[in-house]
Design a protein around this nucleic acid. Structure first.
Length: 829
RNA sequence: GCGAGAAUGGCGGAAUUGGCAGACGCGCUGGAUUUAGGAUCCAGUGGGGAGACCUGUGGGGGUUCGAGUCCCCCUUCUCGCACCA
């Protein structure tokens, strides 16, 4: 029996010793937290107002995917951080919008449905309910009245509407694209489901299957997505990732005439960032998927070998094609020659899969002397290597340095530096008419189709006479129909393809028989604009009213994980810019400021996951220690942007801290004397907590609160005004206990709506400072001196300091450095 | 390979216009109180040394009266991208 009692989940603090006098009840987190959560909710304290003279502040977190596992302790790190900011902003007089919703379409739910046969909607609803309960227990100041759900037809109506607008503007189109296909599950896989070249679930072989799919022309926005990074406050590393992903390169496109035995006029266009090396071209390369390969196939002397190479390349998975970097392969198109327009020399034409069809023009000029890949290839197939930039040793390796070297063997470019030669050659190419300056982006268009059930249906109809026809806006939302089976079909179509009644429809344009699109949208779709819906979540006439958008956009502060700082951020910026262009939103950028948090790892320092068995459940933590301790620990555990292992013992420490804070209450006394040191610490704390929250240094803000609490603990009596400031500073971090202490301090109003404390610079001033004395840079002594003492006084005092004199014995003082208010360093030998 | 970031006690981490290294917390040690302790309170806690002192921020150089902090070189780790012409 005894064992059982000891192991039962009870709040440790309840078992603490009775407080002095026994007047105040012991700290009971559960009781306090339930009480204040209820009061906040009944009074609607955290509902944002759409009609107030107050300045607005819009805080956004990445909305959660409601998985079957429920919340784990990693989720609340971001939510708590911005909750701290939200609560502080309200106290500072802002009208704060801090919303929450569900990114509920997606694979795990669908896979669960496939396994159990339960409808994804039912599963989603259950998961959302669980998440909601879990989040509410943590006391976040979300405006729950604005909750959105991407799977709600009232929501995805507008996701579909945006798609129609994109189609109208020519930004949505269809093309053949390969998908990942698991040969064992017989199902199309998302990239993240392919791990190490095999299916994540069954370990089966994954091959590429070409399918016609919807694409979004994000590349049209590449330049603006890059340039406008200058107009937003994203952490530098986030900007760097965005800019790397867009990957702008400048260079030139050059047309090379192709000579084949039929004598027809053809040319091959290439992109190069190094037009300065044009004189060093020794062969040309087409990617295996290039149009010219088909065209030239029958004109070359080794058609069989070429056909075989192209076939083999197409069989390779993406994984194979990119993984085996060291081994380059290719095949020459014998009998076909390419003319270098600059030198008039003929060079051979090769096909190699190190050239990608998806970048530039899918064809390159090979300069083995000055490009590593070309060098490797030339070595393997014994192709000539010509030096056109002196400065390296091209026998040993390609000389790719662009900052040094001199052009040689290059006619008009000889003697120039590479950077000069690039400019000059680009001019020549343009003047002579066989090329032009060009900019290329690494960014690819966005594959927008998923052959899945649990996503937004794409509102398009395929008509044999009209082609692809959009649904009229009035027909939106196109509701996801019920199906019997959630598996993709054997042909790789979405399960929707099996619903003849749904697929077969009439063409909105000509009224003839037509078929609906059966692909659905990717999970990225709903999450690309959700922050706009929070602004006006129940509007059925627009995605949000323009007045409300005018007031609330842009999001003032968006925080999320580093794992979403490329794709999600880029996609939503793209959609937002598009919406801006069609006049649907008032700002060109969605987020004014973006920060990111580090991952919370398991106690063993490894990534938290069910398979590793190191997942920590926040419910258990809250049961045991309370939401306030939990929130404090999430903020205190380490630098916000660093990954950090969880420690339940550390959380226990926060519980102890709150217990000590609670025990301060009986010491608060109206007649307590003012202690100048305490007053100074109070004002220092106001300043530090105020500034640290803005600087995302939540851990040091909490540490300052602990320091102040420790100071209070050492006093015989605490002045009420000092204690109340402490309570208000604590309120954003541990809001429940703060409300309780605020109430017990005699307030009827809420701490959540009290004004944020202001510090007084005059109170920070000190009248004496500690002066450190060094001899030859080593610390020997220290003494107190009045602020701003003259240098002479400090030097004199330093020379006479007790522990200093022995170190000066028998030495000559060469120099004395005096830093006012800080230190004296005596140099002697 | 490219890009970004990091390396400080037993652990998480503080400290950068260069000026007392280790704030704050965890853990640990000793003590008090207790029927009991994963409760609470008090004291201690980078390493070495009885001590005055010596030594110490991944490694090696440098600048400086003075370097965790600035400069050069190197090592290791984390994240993102990866044959992008």
């Amino acid at each position: 029996m005894k064992r059982q009692t000891r192991n039962s989940k009870t709040n440790f603090a309840i078992r603490g010793s009775a407080p002095a006098g026994g007047i105040v009840a012991r700290y009971n987190a559960q009781e306090i937290e339930a009480k204040w959560q209820k009061r906040w909710e009944t009074e609607g304290v955290f509902c944002a107002s759409d009609d107030t003279p107050k300045p607005k502040y819009y805080l956004l977190i990445e909305f959660p995917y409601p998985s079957g596992q429920g919340l784990h302790v990693g989720h609340p790190r971001s939510y708590t951080a911005l909750d701290v900011v939200a609560r502080k902003r309200r106290m500072q007089g802002y009208n704060v919008l801090y919303p929450i919703g569900w990114d509920a379409f997606g694979l795990p739910t669908e896979n669960f449905a496939i396994k159990t046969g339960e409808h994804p909607r039912v599963v989603t609803e259950r998961n959302v309910n669980r998440f909601r309960i879990q989040l509410k227990r943590l006391g976040f100041s979300f405006d729950w009245s604005r909750e959105v759900d991407t799977t709600d037809p009232g929501y995805y109506k507008w996701t579909q509407w945006i798609f129609l607008k994109l189609w109208e503007r020519g930004l949505a189109y269809r093309t053949e694209m390969p998908i990942n296909w698991c040969t064992s599950c017989n199902v199309g896989l998302a990239n993240e489901e392919v791990v190490g070249g095999v299916c994540e679930r069954c370990g089966g072989e994954v091959v590429r299957r070409v399918k016609s799919q919807w694409m979004l022309r994000i590349t049209t926005y590449a330049e603006r997505l890059l340039a406008d990074l200058d107009t937003v406050q994203f952490l530098d590393k986030i900007k760097a990732q965005q800019s790397n992903w867009i990957g702008r390169s400048t260079g030139a496109e050059v047309d090379f005439p192709v000579r084949a035995r039929d004598g027809a006029k053809r040319s091959m266009r290439i992109f190069t960032t190094r037009p300065d090396t044009l004189f060093g071209v020794t062969y040309m390369v087409l990617s295996p998927e290039h149009r010219l390969v088909d065209e030239l196939l029958e004109l070359c002397d080794n058609a069989d070998a070429v056909r075989e190479y192209v076939r083999a390349a197409s069989q390779k998975s993406d994984f194979e094609r990119t993984e085996v970097i060291k081994e380059v392969t290719g095949v020459e198109m014998k009998g076909v020659r390419v003319l270098n327009p600059a030198t008039r020399a003929e060079v051979p034409l090769w096909i190699a899969d190190y050239v990608l069809i998806s970048y530039g023009t899918g064809a390159i000029m090979a300069v083995p002397g000055h490009d590593e890949r070309d060098w490797r290839f030339a070595r393997k197939y014994d192709l000539p290597v010509v030096e056109v930039i002196a400065g390296g040793d091209i026998e040993k390796e390609a000389f790719v340095d662009i900052d040094r070297g001199t052009l040689v063997n290059s006619g008009p470019l000889n003697g120039l530096r590479p950077d000069e030669a690039i400019v000059k050659m680009t001019d020549i190419v343009e003047r002579e008419g066989y090329g032009k300056a060009s900019v290329q982006y690494r960014l690819r268009d966005w594959v927008f189709s998923r052959q899945r059930y649990w996503g937004e249906p794409i509102p398009m109809v395929s008509c044999p006479s009209c082609g692809w026809v959009p649904l009229p806006e009035n027909d939106l939302p196109l509701v996801l129909p019920e199906v019997e089976n959630y598996r993709t079909t054997d042909t790789g179509e979405s399960p929707l393809a099996l619903l003849a009644d749904w697929v077969n429809t009439t063409c909105p344009s000509c009224g003839g028989a037509a078929k609906r699109e059966t692909d659905t949208m990717p999970q990225w779709a709903g999450s690309s604009w959700y922050f706009l819906r929070y602004i006006d979540p129940h509007n059925d006439r627009a995605l949000a009213s323009s007045e409300k958008l005018q007031y609330w956009t842009p999001v003032d502060w968006y925080n999320g994980g580093m794992e979403h700082t490329t794709l999600h951020l880029l996609y939503s910026r793209f959609w937002h810019k598009f919406l801006y262009d069609i006049g649907a939103v008032p700002t060109p950028e969605p987020y004014a400021k973006r920060t990111s948090h580090g991952l919370i790892l398991g106690e063993n320092g490894e990534k938290m996951s069910k398979s590793r068995g190191n997942v920590v459940n926040p419910d258990e933590m809250v049961d045991k220690y309370g939401a306030d301790s939990f929130r404090l620990y999430e903020m205190f555990m380490g630098a916000f942007d660093q990954p950090i292992p969880w420690s339940t013992q550390g959380l226990n420490g926060m519980n102890r801290f709150l217990y000590r804070v609670w025990e301060l209450l009986p010491k608060v006394a109206a007649d307590a004397p003012e202690d100048p040191e305490t007053t100074r610490l109070v004002h220092q704390s106001i300043r530090k907590v105020t500034e640290d929250i803005e600087a995302i240094k939540f851990n040091t803000a909490v540490a300052q609160l602990m320091t102040l609490s420790n100071k209070f603990q050492g006093l015989a009596g605490i002045r009420p005004q000092d204690f109340e400031i402490f309570v208000l500073l604590l309120a954003p971090f541990a809001p429940h206990i703060a409300e309780e202490l605020w109430e017990r301090s005699g307030h009827d109003s809420l701490a959540a709506t009290a004004p944020w404390p202001a510090w007084d610079d005059a109170k920070l001033a000190v009248d004496s400072v500690t002066i450190v004395v060094q001899v030859n840079g080593k610390l020997r002594d220290s003494f107190q001196a009045p602020v701003d003492s003259p240098k002479e006084d400090l030097e004199k005092a330093a020379r006479e300091a007790e522990k200093v004199r022995p170190h000066l014995q028998g030495k000559t003082v060469r120099k004395v450095i005096v830093v006012p208010n800080k230190l004296v360093n005596i140099v002697a030998n």
